[in-house]
């Protein structure tokens, strides 16, 4: 199994990198851009795990302990075969 983890900044936390990317996109003429938030995407391989629910809870635990800093970040975990 494989877990796909998305880590994003919480609402209300300033994201200067996202802001810089937004400005660059507007500078390139992409007028429709209303905002950009930058995050992280992490894949975790779990070759020994066969139970989807267990895999999800295990990776959520990884997020809380290491992969995300929950003071400023949210995470979401999707498990695929």
């Amino acid at each position: 199994m494989k877990a796909k983890v998305h880590i994003t900044l919480k609402n209300g936390v300033l994201d200067p990198q996202g802001k810089a990317v937004e400005h660059a996109l507007l500078g390139l003429g992409f007028d429709g851009v209303g905002g950009v938030r930058q995050g992280k995407y992490i894949e975790v391989d779990l070759p020994k795990q066969s139970d989807k629910a267990k895999a999800k809870s295990q990776v959520e635990d990884m997020c809380k302990k290491l992969l995300a800093n929950t003071v400023i970040e949210n995470f979401s975990v999707e498990v695929v075969d």
Partner: peptide, 16 residues
């Protein structure tokens, strides 16, 4: 702060 000995977090500088 990451270890939980102090609260909060040090983020990227405002002007990057």
């Amino acid at each position: 702060t990451e270890a939980g000995l102090l609260p909060g977090v040090l983020m990227r500088n405002k002007d990057l």
